[in-house]
Amino acid sequence: MPELTRRRALGAVAGAAAAVAVAGTTAAAARTGRTVSAPSAEPASFDEVFQGRRIQGAPSEASGHHGGGHHGGGHGGGHGGGFAVHIDGKELHVMRNADGTWISVVNHYETFATPRAVARAAVAELQGAALVPLVTT
């Protein structure tokens, strides 16, 4: 999807995102102290060691960055928002919501403000386990 189109779409729901942020709708929000960033802002790249694991995030090619087609229903790219996250070099599947928040395949029902926050949440969830491409057999 062209970047301008996506930005316009995101801008259209900025009001909704702000309303959600003000309402503080989930305990998780309070727990993590997350705030909803400006939806139109591109996320910042990062590279750090968090709880002993290297987490990296950076803009990626807009399509095909998942490769392998391991998630079947596959639209190739786009749902990562053109941003890739890795934990110890293994890709963490992430997705951007319309309100600018993020989720990952290991926290798929809880939103986070930034890709860095979603990466840190995944490290906590993994408890040291390695990410693997989806095992289908």
Partner: peptide, 21 residues
């Protein structure tokens, strides 16, 4: 399990979406 995961990873707010959101 495989079917559900395929949809949850493929359904996007600004793209084709069927099983979720």
């Amino acid at each position: 399990v495989t079917t559900h995961n395929a949809f949850i990873m493929g359904d996007t707010d600004n793209g084709e979406r069927v099983g979720h959101r």
